[in-house]
Design a protein around this nucleic acid. Structure first.
Lengths: 245, 245
DNA sequence: TTCTATTTGTGCGTATGTATT
DNA sequence: CAATACATACGCACAAATAGA
């Protein structure tokens, strides 16, 4: 089979874009299911009657979309994905939320610091300017795959030493209970999406250009007192959020 | 000022990536604020001491991130953004949700069709296989900027002719009230993110490679009867969702 | 209006580096 | 080790859009 006839020059749509669309359609149609890989660039170049660079532009675009993943020396593989579902409610908890969707869930503390709250953090936590907070940088994995990268701030006065407790337990819920917060509620969640930055790429094991879902969330104790503000990045191709239902 | 010294070859990080990071930092630092534009590719190429293609790779990456926007014949502009906030609750309504954030909000019906529900649509709307549904394709704009692209399904038996009503009013809420549904509730919302497809690019006025937030949502009448299932795409750089708060 | 300079967009050919098999 | 295949970068050419003379 040749695709030569399917791409046209001088039609207002770049060749690489036409080819990317065609390959995407081919993948959806199961064209390459036998190998799970896209044919080598040289083969595709011949099939489409274009230079290998043009194929590379097309595959790069598909790589950005997370549809394929090029591996040096091996070939370009088709990505298969299924998303974890992450429910968001008043009682949102990470581990419980993922629940039975993964065999094992781990939390790693990357670093912690005691610092002065920025204007943004102070606003969310309803703290006076200049108040000290404890910041945790953590990664959570489900079945060995990185699922989230969170930056979390706690009021330092109330949660002195929470970093050590989190490091031991790997769980915010357990850490908070050590401080007498047996229950807490999700007050507000903001959701946006953007491209992964270098730090996201590293800690979430992403390909550059991948998409991350970003949540900004505030948890309060049962009295409505803010206890935790988090900015969390999730790999968009591994996670979906659910509200209600 | 020259940036030659800032990029290094053969150090494990591609030149174009180093350059992209540097330009991103320059933008954050307000380096190009006077013009609101990045210097021409040829100038950047000379500044960094690389080929124009290398600069183009860097700018393409930044374009994917939505940080810059290249325009043929004009130059590469730095994007300024502020997101519309879209609250998600039991009483989620598009127009009310955007509310005072925009001066005027319009809804356009692109097309409508009467068709047999797919397995997925039937499942969401709790319909028997083979049941007919009405599908609307619509775009919503706020202050002239495209804010959402929705595909919506209604049970055909109950909402015969809803396409015409929506076309006139541009509002789902008003259209439903014409059919005796004075109130409705958001039962469930799923949120994911992915790269824009050609259709999204066209109808949402996006740049190829942009990110879209995708919601799958079910609305029911006060009795809990499913009345509307929608898949809606939002430009991720123009929208954020809020739950609670 | 027309022409020209500027600037981005597309495509090809080539060379070299690097990782996998 | 060699062969294969992806990764990066350069140089060249021309197309297309824009802005300004």
């Amino acid at each position: 089979m040749t695709d030569v006839a399917t791409v046209q020059r001088q039609k207002g749509v770049a060749l690489w874009r036409q080819i990317a669309d065609k390959i995407r359609a081919n993948i959806s149609a199961g064209e390459y299911d036998s190998t799970g890989m896209v044919p080598p660039e040289t083969v595709l170049a011949e099939q489409f009657g274009v230079n290998r660079h043009t194929i590379r532009s097309a595959l790069a675009a598909l790589g950005q979309e997370g549809i394929v993943r090029a591996m040096q020396g091996r070939g370009t593989m088709i990505e298969v994905k299924d998303r974890f579902n992450f429910p968001i409610s008043r009682r949102t908890r990470f581990t419980q939320g993922i629940g039975r969707q993964a065999r094992d869930i781990e939390g790693f503390l990357l670093s912690s610091a005691r610092e002065i709250a920025t204007a943004e953090v102070a606003r969310w936590l309803k703290l006076a300017p200049g108040t000290e907070v404890i910041r945790l940088e953590a990664v959570r994995k489900a079945d060995g795959r990185a699922l989230s990268r969170a930056t979390t701030w706690f009021p330092a006065a109330r949660f002195e030493g929470i970093a050590e407790v989190f490091a031991k337990t790997g769980s915010v819920t357990k850490a908070l209970s050590e401080f007498g917060v047996g229950d807490y509620l999700r007050d507000k969640t903001e959701i946006t999406a953007r491209h992964a930055e270098p730090d996201d790429v590293a800690t979430l094991e992403l390909t550059p250009g991948a998409i991350v879902l970003v949540t900004r969330a505030l948890n309060t104790d049962p009295d409505g007192e803010p206890i935790q503000y988090s900015i969390t990045r999730f790999p968009a191709d591994r996670v979906q959020f659910t509200i209600g239902g």
